[in-house]
Nucleic acid binder design. Sequence first.
DNA 1: TCCTAAATATGATTTTTATCATGTTTTAAA
DNA 2: TTTAAAACATGATAAAAATCATATTTAGGA
Lengths: 143, 143
Amino acid sequence: MFSNSSKYAIKAVLFLAVNSSEDHRIMVKDMAEPINVPQAYLAKLLQELSRKGIISSKKGPKGGFFLSKENSQLTLMDVVNVIDADDKFNACLLSLEKCNADKPCPLHDLAIPSRSKLIHSLNQNSIKDFSMQIEQGKVFLPL
Amino acid sequence: MFSNSSKYAIKAVLFLAVNSSEDHRIMVKDMAEPINVPQAYLAKLLQELSRKGIISSKKGPKGGFFLSKENSQLTLMDVVNVIDADDKFNACLLSLEKCNADKPCPLHDLAIPSRSKLIHSLNQNSIKDFSMQIEQGKVFLPL
DNA sequence: TCCTAAATATGATTTTTATCATGTTTTAAA
DNA sequence: TTTAAAACATGATAAAAATCATATTTAGGA
Ligand code: FES
Ligand code: FES
């Protein structure tokens, strides 16, 4: 479903959403272990997310990564789109050219309705929404 | 969702379901192009499927691959399980140890219900069921 | 029996993804 | 103004997935 990189990015962003703020930045070395991602790889991912404006960062001593108000209004779809191919969610499950409801492949009707729901959720809920759910103990972000 | 190999395997099996029979076997070179899979790679996949008893084959002149009655009673889940890792459908979307409804990750409730439905469909419908849908023109198997 | 056409077995190569490593730039604080 | 701590940029390596290649075995037909 998601690439490893996407999973890492999602975990990292949600971790920042819960644990960081404009004036409490988090260093890559302090989040690698909690979210269980190889530190050097995480560093690369965070830098890319930062470059693309998904997360924010500050260099130098007392620097680190954090989510601005604007960042936390983005969606997890925004996050995933930075990492994975654009058509990830539009492709036919069997890679039959384009996924097309008028000429559905044998898996289309089984899978697409649910996939659409997931896409919708990823597009609707902001990062903030997710972090609130975590803070309310409704969902969890362990390893 | 599915690996490339799984997609290829599904396409190949469904192609055989529709086009082959015990006494009308199909050679790998005759199905590679129709289902749009590199011939040598397809050969390897078909051999593995055959070894695992998902499809049938006959060597030598007039040989080829086909689906026996028993083969076509298998499910697409059986096909996928030959290729992909066993826990493919049980893993947490964010790879948080085990997917666990009691301690759901932020994506669990968004994605798992639909995934369960898909799994159920893959387990319930036989290959034969799918080939009938294709023959009835309800779904399609182009490229 | 011999030839040939097919699957089978096995391994090599390529491509993609994931991971690691290291030098450069920025910035807070002494 | 010097130092050090952090992100940033870039490239190298490793692992996995996909693809290609080729020698071996089986079996039908001349
Ligand atoms: S046509 Fe294959 S998933 Fe839509
Ligand atoms: S806990 Fe993550 S998908 Fe179930």
